[in-house]
Design a protein around this nucleic acid. Sequence first.
RNA 1: GGUCUCGUAGUACAAUGGAUAGUACGCAAGUCUCCGGAACUUGAUAUCCCAGUUCGAUUCUGGGCGAGACUACCA
Length: 598
Amino acid sequence: MNTASQIKPFVLRALKDLYNAEFTESELTITATRPEFEGDFTLVLFSFVKQLKKSPEHLGKEIGGYLQKMSPEFFKSYNVIKGFLNLTLSDSHWVIFLKENFSNKMFGIQSQTGNKVIVEYSSPNTNKPLHLGHLRNIFLGWSIAEILKAQGNEVIKTCVVNDRGIHICKSMVAWQLFANGATPETTKIKGDHFVGEYYVKFNDEHLRQQEELMKNGMGKEEAEKEAPIMKATQQMLLDWEAGKPEVMELWEKMNEWVYKGFNVTYKRIGADFDKMYYESNTYLLGKKFVEEGLKQGVFFRKDDGSVWIDLTAEGLDQKLVLRKDGTSVYMTQDLGLAEEKYQDYHYDQSIYVVGDEQNYHMKVLKLIMEKLGKPYADGIFHLSYGMVELPSGRMKSREGTVVDADDIINEMAAVAKQKTEDLGKVKDFSESELASLYDTIGLGALKFFLMRVDPKKKMVFNPEESVDFHGFTGPFVQYTYARIQSILRKEGNAADLKSVNTGNRSVLPLFNSEKQLIILLEQFPAIIQLAAEEHNPSVIAVYVFNLSRMFNTFYSELSVINAESEEKKQLRLQLCMMTSNIIASATSLLGIKVPERM
RNA sequence: GGUCUCGUAGUACAAUGGAUAGUACGCAAGUCUCCGGAACUUGAUAUCCCAGUUCGAUUCUGGGCGAGACUACCA
């Protein structure tokens, strides 16, 4: 239990004893005291004024005095400013907290609750490589999975691969036309990029043919459809659905190339999945839902044979769930997939990490499930995240402004290399140690940059800012960690520290920066909980940055190794150790590694 | 047109209805006989507009103005 919630029962008791008033804990507002005032925690008094008919100043003095009388060893002092009662706890409270927790690497991690959560993220297409938008998705999805694990949930990470459809056929047709049998192996190009090139070639050729037809007087829309390369693509889709062997073979071959490429990237960024779903397997699922829905009267059939759901009562539109020719649409498939996932795992909650452009789709999906009376409908949660934009605006593939995932990762690592060499602190590292360090720093910077913002909000990715390793960045946190390790290498031994009694008088009083650091350390479990509840990794990013900043302030003000007494030295070593444990723990929830040296 | 988001220093982001609106980059000025300067300290600069609810509004409500997403028998 954290300190703020330890205070609450005392306050409730005081209110009862002093005024015979009954309040609940949730009615109390206790916050960290703002730095410009004296105190550790602040009780907001305004909410009692009306009921108790006393001025806030009066209440503050009475409650403060009573608290101190009740537990003088806990409450050291208090002051009242306007409607705020600022409470200062005794330093020994903090010292004891530190002593009990400094060596616990699992601090803040909850034990298993038995709750089962499935997280779907990444979900790429197999016709082009991953880009910056995918990275936001992947980092968020992976991180939220880890955060939920830390809260005691059993988590299954899944990925739905969009491996079929007209867009895949485009790459396939272009490859047949232009590749001359070239492969990733013969060209030494990463598989996903290789296939992506043919997708681009398709679009170029399509545009060329289209313009030619328009020169001969054809309208734009018709020219788009009538271009020979588009005709060939549509034919290929039909052949695919018919299972024509040579088409299937090509399709499998090209997808394999892409998967090989994806796996290289996934491995490098540390993404992993417990279960892959492929649309080529799932796209026919969901049709039985249509039957079920029709029977229940949830869906209705139009004269042309297409099946719809009417959501106008919910303020939405009518939505198609099955085409008139009886084939599935996106929604049909998602209905089936939700059921499939439930059959596979019997989850309590199912999280979809999907961009906010699909808010409407996800809302409809959940609503349909509710109307069909599915028990798991409630557990469906859309973790909606905003688009990543560039300073120049949205990324547009047609204008070539899409930031490729592999490119940006390489660039970040290159900047890490450059800066590391400039500083020259790890000249004794081997080649492979250096390569690994550059990835740690480069990816740390990139992940932090993409996750430090509230997922719900769209964000701007400024390439220049992203390679700045100062301030509110991943490398700043990593640097703080490395610096602590340097101290601990010299002096820190957890077993020795435990045997020393830092609870005695010579460690007191605490300096402000010592206390502020402990107060922050103590918040970590509550921070994880908040991040989980809000499905928001940025809570962790902001916290670990503030913790690092606080440590650096402490570090510059007070000497650890040359402390004024042995006990102070032990206390500060404990602070170092706990800070570094929590930095490691927090960054690992973000998928960011921390280096021993950098 | 309809539905939904979002408007905070030059820029990018924070702030369960609480105190003098934080942080970073950039800008200006400092800190080192220092356990790692990828650090620390200080300064200047902001809540789109108008009402309302409240002891108290960046936050909630209504109305403007501005930006974006969605609104396919595409996925």
